[in-house]
Amino acid sequence: MLNNIGLPGLLLIAVVVLVLFGRGKISSLMGEVGKGITSFKKGVADGSKDDEDAAEAQPKPIMADGTSARDVSPEAKKDKV
C-alpha cells in the first residue's frame, strides 16, 4: 500500500498537515523533537560515563600476602573476551 505513494502524494500529505496544524505548531513540534534527540544523546553519553566510572570504582582483589592480583594471561588471549 505504501509502495504506491510517490512524490505528488507526499507533497499533498505535507500540504494537508501544514493546513491543519499551521506553521507555528509544526515548527514548535520540530523544536521539541530536536530537544528530545539532544537529551537522548546526552543521556546515552552520561550512561556510558557512569558505566566506566563504576568499572573503575570496583576494588581490586587482594591476595593472601597483601599484594593485588594481576593478569598473567598471554597477550594473544587477552583480546578474546
Rank of each mutant, 00 (worst) to 15 (best):
M1V: 15
M1Q: 13
M1C: 03
M1L: 05
M1F: 12
L2F: 15
I5P: 00
G6Q: 04
G6R: 08
G6I: 00
L7K: 05
P8G: 02
G9Q: 02
G9R: 01
L10R: 14
L10N: 04
L10F: 11
L11Q: 14
L11S: 09
L12K: 12
I13A: 15
I13Q: 11
A14Y: 05
A14D: 06
A14I: 04
A14K: 02
V15E: 00
V16G: 01
V17P: 01
V17S: 06
L18H: 11
L18M: 08
L18T: 10
L20T: 13
F21S: 10
F21W: 12
G22K: 00
G22P: 05
G22T: 09
G22S: 06
G22D: 06
R23S: 14
G24I: 02
G24N: 05
I26N: 00
L29K: 02
L29E: 03
M30S: 13
M30V: 15
M30K: 12
G31P: 00
E32Q: 14
E32R: 15
V33L: 14
V33N: 07
V33C: 12
V33S: 09
G34K: 09
K35A: 07
K35D: 06
K35Y: 06
G36Y: 00
G36K: 01
G36T: 03
I37V: 05
T38H: 08
T38E: 12
S39Y: 09
S39H: 13
K41R: 13
K41I: 09
K42C: 06
K42M: 05
G43L: 01
G43N: 08
V44E: 07
V44P: 01
A45V: 12
A45I: 10
D46I: 04
G47Y: 05
G47W: 11
S48E: 07
S48R: 15
S48K: 14
S48C: 13
S48G: 04
K49G: 02
K49E: 02
D50W: 02
E52P: 02
E52D: 09
D53E: 07
A55M: 06
E56V: 07
E56Q: 08
E56P: 00
E56W: 03
A57S: 05
A57Y: 02
A57E: 09
Q58K: 06
Q58Y: 00
Q58P: 00
P59T: 03
K60Q: 06
K60E: 08
P61C: 01
P61Q: 08
I62R: 12
M63S: 08
A64V: 04
A64M: 09
G66P: 10
G66A: 06
T67C: 04
T67P: 00
T67S: 10
S68P: 10
A69E: 13
A69M: 10
D71H: 01
D71E: 07
S73K: 11
S73N: 05
S73Y: 00
P74N: 00
P74K: 05
P74C: 07
E75Q: 08
A76S: 15
A76K: 11
K77Y: 15
K77I: 12
K77P: 01
K78Q: 09
K78N: 02
K78V: 02
D79L: 15
K80F: 11
K80C: 04
V81S: 14
